[in-house]
Amino acid sequence: MRIAYCEDEPAQRSRMEMLLRTFAERKNIEYRNQLLARQVEEVQNIYLTMRGWRHDYPIICSR
């Protein structure tokens, strides 16, 4: 036996799709923010490392 067709079903499906899309967008934004934060941290680390090398380079060359 089949359940009777509900006329409101397309509206419910549309709302569910909207909720899923919103959830996916939020997860995507969260992922991109984490990725950006990690990249900023890596660039800062590279900068500090190169700054240390630049500081030490004249001392090493004068020996």
Score class of each variant (00 low, 15 high):
residue 46 I to F: 02
residue 54 R to A: 10
residue 55 H to N: 13
residue 40 V to G: 01
residue 43 V to E: 14
residue 49 T to C: 07
residue 10 P to Y: 03
residue 49 T to I: 10
residue 13 R to V: 14
residue 25 E to L: 12
residue 61 C to Q: 15
residue 22 T to N: 13
residue 10 P to E: 01
residue 17 E to M: 08
residue 63 R to H: 06
residue 55 H to V: 05
residue 41 E to T: 01
residue 18 M to S: 12
residue 52 G to N: 15
residue 33 N to Q: 15
residue 5 Y to N: 08
residue 12 Q to A: 11
residue 38 R to M: 04
residue 2 R to C: 10
residue 25 E to C: 03
residue 47 Y to T: 08
residue 42 E to Y: 01
residue 44 Q to P: 00
residue 23 F to S: 10
residue 63 R to D: 07
residue 14 S to E: 15
residue 1 M to P: 13
residue 2 R to L: 11
residue 52 G to W: 01
residue 50 M to H: 07
residue 48 L to V: 03
residue 26 R to N: 05
residue 59 I to Q: 10
residue 56 D to P: 02
residue 23 F to A: 09
residue 36 L to M: 03
residue 28 N to T: 10
residue 15 R to I: 02
residue 15 R to T: 07
residue 7 E to Q: 03
residue 6 C to E: 12
residue 51 R to D: 08
residue 49 T to W: 04
residue 3 I to L: 14
residue 42 E to K: 02
residue 63 R to N: 07
residue 33 N to Y: 08
residue 34 Q to L: 08
residue 4 A to Y: 04
residue 16 M to Y: 08
residue 62 S to Q: 06
residue 5 Y to C: 12
residue 55 H to L: 14
residue 29 I to Y: 05
residue 17 E to V: 00
residue 61 C to W: 13
residue 23 F to L: 09
residue 21 R to I: 02
residue 13 R to D: 12
residue 20 L to R: 10
residue 8 D to K: 11
residue 7 E to D: 09
residue 32 R to G: 00
residue 47 Y to W: 02
residue 55 H to T: 07
residue 3 I to F: 15
residue 27 K to C: 10
residue 17 E to P: 00
residue 4 A to T: 12
residue 26 R to M: 07
residue 43 V to R: 10
residue 22 T to I: 07
residue 18 M to Y: 05
residue 44 Q to F: 03
residue 31 Y to F: 11
residue 6 C to R: 14
residue 49 T to V: 09
residue 56 D to S: 15
residue 19 L to M: 10
residue 14 S to V: 05
residue 63 R to G: 04
residue 54 R to C: 06
residue 38 R to E: 09
residue 62 S to R: 12
residue 54 R to P: 00
residue 22 T to K: 11
residue 12 Q to F: 03
residue 58 P to N: 07
residue 39 Q to S: 07
residue 18 M to V: 03
residue 52 G to T: 02
residue 17 E to Q: 12
residue 52 G to R: 07
residue 36 L to V: 00
residue 29 I to A: 15
residue 4 A to C: 12
residue 45 N to F: 02
residue 15 R to W: 04
residue 14 S to P: 00
residue 6 C to G: 10
residue 20 L to E: 11
residue 19 L to W: 05
residue 35 L to D: 04
residue 41 E to P: 00
residue 38 R to Y: 05
residue 32 R to M: 14
residue 11 A to M: 06
residue 52 G to K: 06
residue 19 L to I: 03
residue 34 Q to H: 09
residue 58 P to Y: 09
residue 15 R to F: 08
residue 9 E to N: 09
residue 21 R to H: 14
residue 35 L to G: 03
residue 18 M to A: 15
residue 35 L to A: 06
residue 59 I to V: 14
residue 1 M to H: 09
residue 5 Y to G: 07
residue 50 M to A: 06
residue 16 M to S: 06
residue 57 Y to M: 14
residue 38 R to H: 03
residue 22 T to W: 04
residue 55 H to P: 01
residue 10 P to Q: 02
residue 14 S to T: 07
residue 25 E to Q: 11
residue 35 L to F: 11
residue 40 V to N: 11
residue 13 R to Y: 03
residue 4 A to I: 12
residue 52 G to I: 00
residue 2 R to H: 13
residue 12 Q to T: 08
residue 57 Y to L: 15
residue 17 E to I: 02
residue 31 Y to R: 13
residue 23 F to W: 06
residue 17 E to K: 04
residue 20 L to P: 01
residue 48 L to P: 00
residue 24 A to N: 09
